[in-house]
């Protein structure tokens, strides 16, 4: 049987080790998880995991410096692609973080900051376990109950122009899109690698997904 190669894109931001370890933990036999920053390996991979952490500007800079912008953009068009946290946000056209940052423009739309009412006791960053309401059926939701809790840490959220690609929403003061799905692309604001069993199930589903 052929080996399946899944590339975790390393551009110097975020806890890649956690993501790779979680994927490895549930990877079927013959699936190899490879942390890489080499364009040829990304090109050769059957599926892509695109993690990320930190600020938008630093992420975009790191993508530029490691020559990852084009390979990532290309992969989003071609094969099963899982964006995580900042790996979701930088797919958008533009972020309002750091006085405005141009992003990868894979998904038309914006990244905005939580602006909560002054009287609220809600905290920003939105940090901790919150529910994801699945607003679309998707192979990656297989065996994950509706409104399951995932671990989130972020101060910004995505707002796609096309509402039809929202696959999950979460409420923290406002209800925001926490999962986007379009063709072979699935991107989640939460950290499945830190979301215990439901997160592992999501990785398992992704590793078996053909992108359709």
């Amino acid at each position: 049987m052929d080996q399946k190669l899944v590339a975790v894109i390393d551009y110097g931001m975020g806890n890649l080790r956690s993501v790779a370890k979680a994927a490895e933990h549930v990877a079927p036999k013959h699936t190899r998880i490879l942390v890489t920053h080499k364009p040829e390996e990304i090109e050769a991979a059957d599926a892509i995991i695109f993690p990320g952490q930190g600020a938008a500007k630093a992420c975009m800079k790191a993508l530029l410096n490691t020559g990852m912008i084009h390979p990532v953009q290309k992969a989003t068009q071609e094969k099963p692609f899982l964006g995580i946290c900042m790996g979701l946000q930088v797919l958008m056209s533009h972020s309002t973080e750091n006085e405005g940052v141009a992003c990868l423009n894979v998904v038309p739309g914006e990244v905005k900051q939580f602006e909560l009412d002054n009287n609220t006791s809600l905290k920003v960053p939105h940090m901790g376990w919150n529910q994801i309401q699945q607003t679309q059926e998707h192979p990656l939701w297989h065996n994950i109950p509706q409104n399951s809790r995932f671990y989130f840490v972020h101060s910004y959220y995505v707002q796609p122009n096309n509402q039809a690609i929202i696959a999950g929403t979460t409420t923290h003061g406002i209800t925001f899109p926490s999962v986007l799905s379009h063709n072979n692309l699935f991107a989640i604001q939460a950290h499945p690698e830190k979301s215990a069993d439901h997160g592992l199930t999501l990785f398992q589903n992704f590793l078996q997904w053909n992108g359709q």
Binding site: N130, Q131, H172
Partner: peptide, 8 residues
């Protein structure tokens, strides 16, 4: 539906 309080 909202953020859960955590136990650590």
């Amino acid at each position: 539906m909202s953020l859960a309080k955590r136990i650590i």
